[in-house]
Design a protein around this nucleic acid. Structure first.
Lengths: 198, 198
DNA sequence: TGTACATCAGTGAACGCGCGTTCACTGATGTAC
DNA sequence: TGTACATCAGTGAACGCGCGTTCACTGATGTAC
């Protein structure tokens, strides 16, 4: 009994496209830099239709965060190398120069963590949920102890160094220095990932 | 031959007060959240006078970053405990719950790094200069090797974990989880600070 | 001693602009009869 | 087969608002004579 002016699922597809482009642009320019009108124009649409898909920009942000975090999780569940070398491959991919210059496709923590910290509780809830899944994916790649609690603790430390290091490499003006910072971060992340005890 | 309507140095004092309040507000709400008019009103002044002190908001940002970084540097040159326990005291002070809830008085890297990364080159130059001073202050507190290059490398790793960890603790919605994250970060920072080799 | 003038930190109206959000609408389609 | 109507994704003008920046000004003071 429903009508279908566009093919079935068209609206849902548009919605997904909006979330997709938002997930990239938020990471690229920061949350405030992304305007609803600009975003819709990026898909060849006009801004008015936005509110047929989302109650507010904040709701879009929540969905974009969830999508971006799921991407990271997927990368960590399936790193470039399977098995034993997986963790090291993961670290090297994260602290790579390409990740410095392409935040829009990269880790949302490194791109937006301080901005997320200033968002309303509901948004931080969504972030937390996605983060925990990524943490568990990362913990699964860690060597050392079997204890899942200890693993998770180390996973937090690893993501901490990685995101902090990546942010410094991005913020600094000198590219040579940025590369040195990345190297320090790789060394540290591997130390923390492989270590059995503090 | 100069006139002095206000006492000598009055304008310089006003300028310093503007930089001071800006250094706190930028860290508290993010760079975009700080409006020139609001800022001046916070000092009992009106927005028009702002441009007698600074060419632009960006110039103010540069000065505010320099001031905030100098504060951090000072804390690290003189940690709560002198000598051997200095580094551990520094780490515990950084990854403290008070630092989670009071970003305006805290580390500018943890509060603003991703936003700084999107600023024009000149601003990132200022950040880099201040960061290097803080790094050297931190490196001076590290145990382990004598080689200053190796120390600096480890100092980058330590600031990386500390700022990344603090950001996660701030971004997460659950306070209990935030405390766990802080603990992971302390353990990791101490490991990296004390270790001699990766 | 008194008046005219110069200085200058700070004032506040005004500029153009983009923001998030609302809402009456358009126009292509499918259904009813 | 043709006409009237319902649906609904997307349109675009309009809303109030705050932004960074400019600029003619105010008013308290010191200097000149």
């Amino acid at each position: 009994l429903h009508l279908v002016r566009y093919e079935k699922g068209h609206k849902a597809t548009t919605r997904r496209r909006i979330v997709g482009i938002a997930a990239r642009r938020f990471r690229k320019g920061g949350i405030d830099a992304v305007g609803v009108a600009d975003l819709m124009a990026g898909l060849g649409l006009t801004h008015g239709g936005f509110y047929a898909h989302f109650r507010s920009k904040e709701e879009l942000l929540r969905e974009a965060l969830a999508v971006a975090l799921a991407e990271t999780q997927a990368k960590w569940v399936h790193p470039a190398k399977k098995g034993k070398g997986g963790f090291e491959a993961l670290v090297r991919a994260y602290l790579d120069e390409a990740h410095v210059t392409s935040p829009d496709r990269g880790c949302v923590c490194a791109a937006l963590a301080p901005e997320i910290a200033r968002r309303p509780r509901r948004t931080r809830d969504v972030f937390e949920k996605g983060l925990m899944k990524s943490i568990d994916a990362l913990a699964a790649q860690l060597g050392g102890d079997k204890d899942p609690v200890a693993r998770r603790r180390r996973a937090f430390a690893v993501i901490g160094v990685m995101m902090g290091t990546l942010q410094l490499a991005r913020a600094v003006a000198d590219e040579k220095l940025a590369r040195q910072i990345l190297r320090s971060g790789i060394e540290a992340a591997l130390t923390l990932g492989k270590k059995r005890k503090a």
